[in-house]
Every structure is written in structure tokens, then in C-alpha cells.
Write a protein that binds this DNA or RNA. Structure first.
Length: 259
DNA sequence: ATGCCCTAGCCCCTAGGA
């Protein structure tokens, strides 16, 4: 079974790339972030034609947005992260995909340390933790994946030494990931390897002229609960996709689970 | 060589991304 996450930086701008990638990789589940696509414009038919069911949560203004595509029938879907009734940002999509609960997240960027956006990011992560603690069981098969906008540790940072402690690499943000792990999640890539320098995001400004896979951040993460840890066969970043024409600034990350 | 990208909408500039 293959489960993927991909921040596409606008689904409408990259629909042909996404459908071509689905045909090439044939994942069972693909979680998209930053679809920037209002619900009434969501291209459901393009995915249904490839055999996927779709769930999506977009914003009228075309910011943020998440979608989950699944080859097996989707069960109950939730698009509201509890805890703040006035939060209109669409960054959360929980859906049952067969035996798995799949939680697709687009964690807020945070803009700058100490900014309002930064506190929104930390508050959002604490709401996510509260949701897991209150409504999910770590003994059940669950995948939490998406664009976390946090590099878990120094091995995941390749954008300059001054980045340690900065946005995406600060103790506050990493502590929030630590709370998720304490609930009962494992970073699937770290189940397989302790290798440094595996990145999933690459700045357009740095890499447009010539893509440099050695200069980026690993911020697109796939967490699994304990029952799935022994089944983690592989976690791979599709750098070929990032190196192509008109790419997203994020590469897809693909988890393979043994049956 | 010190790099100036990309997207959407408020659409020829600005905001947000990370």
C-alpha cells in the first residue's frame, strides 16, 4: 500500500502534473496541500477518471486548502479542526481510507518568530494534539501526514547554518512535533533511516535555474501509529518531480506499507 | 557569480508562501 503527501502550490496550476504523477506512481492515497482551489472549482472528474474518490476542503479566496484522493472508498470525512469556531482556514482533512484513518494537514507557515501568524501556528498544532488525544487512539492504524512547515531536527535542514532556531527550526515548533510523537506517532522516514540531507522543499529562488537537491528542508512529513511501524517498508521523496518543468516548490513524499 | 521565485486575486501591484 502506498500513501503520499504533496504540497502542490495550487492544484489548478498543476493539475496535469498531478494526474500524470498519479498515473506514474499509482498511490492508494494522495494527500494534497495548498490546493488554493475554491470547492466549486475542484477538479473532481479528473481524479475520478483515474479511479480515485475525492474529499476536499478549499477556501473561497483561493488560499490554503487540502484534498485527499483515495483508490479505496472514503469513509467519514472531517474538515474542521476542533478548538476554534472562528477559524476559516482550510488546513485539516481527516478521512477513513479502508483500514486506515488518514489525517491530511497543512500546518500554518508562521511567517516570523513571535508574529501573530507564529502564535496561530503553535495554537493550531496544540489543537491538532488535542484532537488526537481526545478523539483518536494511538493503538489504531493512523497516518498523519502533510506539510508541517517544521523541520524535525538538524538532519532535515539544508538551507544554511543560521537556520537553526529560525522559523521552521525553532524549539517551540519542534516541541509541538514532540508532543505529537509523545501521543504515539513515529516519523516514518526515521523508522527506516537516520540519514541527513533528505529534503522535500526547495526554495524557488534558490533552485529555479538549476535544481539543487542538497539545498532544502524536510518539512513534508508522514507520521504513523505503532501498529503501522513494523509495516513501514519505504519512505521516498520524488525529487524527479521537483526537478521537472513548472514544479511545485515541494516534492511528493511516498510511504510504502507492507500488507 | 552574493542568486529575487511563484500563485491568486484585490489583476500590472500586493500578500503570502517557507
Amino acid at each position: 500500500m502506498k500513501i503520499a503527501t504533496w504540497n502542490v502550490n495550487s492544484l489548478r496550476a498543476r493539475l496535469e502534473r498531478v494526474t500524470a504523477w498519479l498515473e506514474r506512481q499509482r498511490p492508494d492515497v494522495l494527500c494534497l496541500q495548498e490546493t488554493k482551489c475554491p470547492d466549486e472549482q475542484f477538479p473532481s472528474a479528473a481524479f475520478e477518471a483515474l479511479g480515485y474518490e475525492v474529499a476536499f476542503a478549499g477556501e473561497p479566496g483561493g488560499l490554503n486548502g487540502v484534498a485527499t484522493l483515495s483508490r479505496c472508498p472514503l469513509g467519514p470525512v472531517r474538515s474542521e479542526l476542533p478548538g476554534r469556531a472562528d477559524d476559516a482556514q482550510r488546513r485539516f482533512l481527516a478521512a477513513r481510507c479502508g483500514e486506515l484513518e488518514v489525517i491530511n494537514v497543512y500546518v500554518p507557515n508562521g511567517q516570523a518568530l513571535g508574529s501573530d501568524a507564529f502564535f496561530y501556528k503553535l495554537d493550531w498544532l496544540s489543537r491538532l494534539q488535542a484532537y488526537l488525544v481526545g478523539e483518536r487512539e494511538p493503538t489504531c492504524p493512523l497516518v498523519l501526514l502533510g506539510d508541517f512547515n517544521i523541520a524535525p531536527d538538524g538532519r532535515d535542514v539544508g538551507v544554511g547554518e543560521d537556520s537553526e532556531g529560525a522559523l521552521h527550526c525553532s524549539p517551540h515548533e519542534r516541541r509541538a512535533l514532540g508532543y505529537l510523537e509523545a501521543w504515539g506517532l513515529r516519523d516514518a522516514l526515521r523508522v527506516r533511516t537516520d540519514q541527513a540531507g533528505i529534503y522535500s522543499w526547495f526554495d524557488y529562488r534558490e533552485t529555479t535555474r538549476r535544481f539543487d537537491p542538497g539545498r532544502g528542508l524536510r518539512i513534508d512529513l508522514i507520521y504513523v501509529t505503532a501498529p503501522l511501524v513494523p509495516r513501514v517498508a519505504d519512505v521516498a521523496v520524488d525529487l524527479e518531480e521537483r526537478a521537472g518543468e513548472r514544479p511545485s516548490d515541494h516534492a511528493p513524499v511516498l510511504l510504502t506499507l507492507t500488507p
